[in-house]
Amino acid sequence: MMPPTALVRRAAPVLACIGVLALWQVAALALKNDSFPTAVEAMRAIPAILGDKEALINIMASLRRMAIGFGVAVLVSIPLGLMMGRSRAVAAFFNPLLMVIYPVPKAALMPIIMLWLGVGDITKTLVIFLGVSLPVIYHSFEGAKAVEEKMLWSGAAMGLSAIQRMVRIVLPAALPEILTGCRTGLVLALITMITSEMIARQSGAGNILFNALDMGQYDTVFAMIIIVGAMGIGLDAIFERVRARLVRWSEPQFDMPLSFS
């Protein structure tokens, strides 16, 4: 039997979801607007989308691009961030470049990328890659910078080479910070995924959403928003589970996990 406080904590996210849906329902009923279906109507449209083969293919294509963009970004950004964090020269070289790229909305680069690479998978995956890279680089950089010098010295005395120290001391020591960056990156991957499909409409979850909007199928629009939102929440929850396992050795900074896991 769970103690009452734990029960409340467990139930809190579910209660929050119900609360949002209830507010939506009340607001939609009060406004009586054609373009604003009620929560119940929107949810009724979900099975139709998930049962449609075409729609599923679209959603899977979105997820594939997102996975590739996210995966490649993480593989490139973590080593880069770690090297920047440990080498003044590397940091001095990449910092100005990243400072210029950082505030530019990645979706704003899409027209140029489309011009060069077309409207296909490569363009969209590249935009996701760009969106994910920066937070992961930034957090890896901060994590590597904060690694205690004496810890590296201890490793050096044991005979670890510079590369071994990077992989076997800097990487694990910075892991909590790196994973914080990856979590932000994961959400950004979802955002850039949908945005890219809005701009280059051809396939994907964003494409279904905006086609439905064009055709005035508002229940489908809202149903897609719920589906995409649920995908985000689900991915984040899975990621948090993995993260908590990987860094259970680290000092907890926050007692309340900001997640659904």
């Binding site: 205690e148 004496k150 810890m151 010295w153 201890s154 050096a156 005395a157 044991m158 005979g159 001391i169 694990p172 020591a173 892991l175 860094v247 050795w249 680290s250 000092e251």
Partner: peptide, 29 residues
Amino acid sequence: TGPGPDRGPVFQEFALFPWKTVLGNVMYG
């Protein structure tokens, strides 16, 4: 000319590897 296992440091800051258990830390060298 550099660090080596013939000279073992013990620092005021401990400098343990926090992702390793006590046994993992001691076995590392």
